[in-house]
């Protein structure tokens, strides 16, 4: 198992958001974490990436207990997050943002190779490499956020609502990229509100409801379940 969460309880101050969350991601999989607003999807990713310390429970990566490690050590191990709201460096150029993406020792030496790879995935970023990140459109910023995540040469890439706020055409493009990344050997944990699109690209999925995992299984099975179709697909 590449990534594993065991009985995670987490939250903010007195407010508990996650209750005994168990989750597993195997190498080479695309796994989706679905659920409505406030179900705890972003909180789960924050716990995995080390931005939030859980109240209890454990996070394992490559068999190693990383629950107490700071976020920079986790990126160094190959765990990258494309965060909610993109969190780019607005006053820096596209190229500088990508260079910061390759900040870890793990990624530093491969910077040129990775840059070429990322530019081949997102040719637009190459055209715009000297533009300030803050002046780009929402779709371009999302591309840059994903590209910056890839610059760290992750084994697992976590994406928090990459389709949020994007035009339908761009949403298709983003999910196309997700598929392409899997072919390139990147394992993906995808958090989405756009359940249909996410299930279409995923191997397996988990559904969170008010901080608890209520359903899990192969994406195709979930797509066929009445309760899923009613609650999340609007069919």
């Amino acid at each position: 198992m590449l990534l594993e969460l065991q009985k995670i309880n987490a939250g903010y101050g007195d407010l508990q958001v996650l209750w005994d969350v168990d989750l597993q991601v195997d190498r080479g999989e695309i796994v989706s974490l679905l659920g409505s607003n406030g179900a705890g999807k972003t909180t789960t990713l924050r716990v995995i990436s080390g931005l939030l310390k859980p109240f209890s429970g454990k996070v394992f990566f490559n068999g190693e207990d990383i629950t107490r490690l700071p976020s920079n050590k986790r990126v160094e191990m190959g765990l990258a997050l494309v965060p909610e709201g993109r969190q780019l460096f607005p006053e820096m150029t596209v190229l500088d943002n990508l260079e910061m993406g390759a900040y870890t020792r793990r990624a530093r030496d491969k910077f040129q190779d990775t840059l070429e790879w990322v530019f081949s995935l997102f040719p637009k970023l190459k055209e715009r490499k000297n533009q300030l990140a803050g002046t780009m459109s929402g779709g371009e910023q999302q591309m840059l956020a994903i590209a910056r995540g890839l610059m760290s040469r992750p084994e697992v890439l976590m994406m928090d609502e990459p389709s949020m706020g994007l035009a339908p055409k761009l949403v298709l493009e983003i999910f196309g990229t997700v598929r392409k990344l899997r072919e390139e050997g990147v394992t993906i944990l995808l958090v989405e509100q756009n359940a249909k699109a996410a299930l279409d690209v995923s191997d397996r999925a988990y559904i969170l409801e008010t901080g608890r995992i209520v359903l899990k299984g192969p994406a195709r099975e979930l797509l066929g379940m009445d309760e899923v179709r009613k609650a999340y697909l609007g069919i």
Partner: peptide, 24 residues
């Protein structure tokens, strides 16, 4: 300089800085 850029990164977006693996 790389460290200098990291200083700017932290000042522009501390969460973004942690996400890319900068030791904030």
């Amino acid at each position: 300089v790389r460290i200098g850029k990291a200083i700017r990164a932290v000042s522009q977006n501390p969460i973004g800085a942690r996400v890319v693996g900068i030791d904030v």
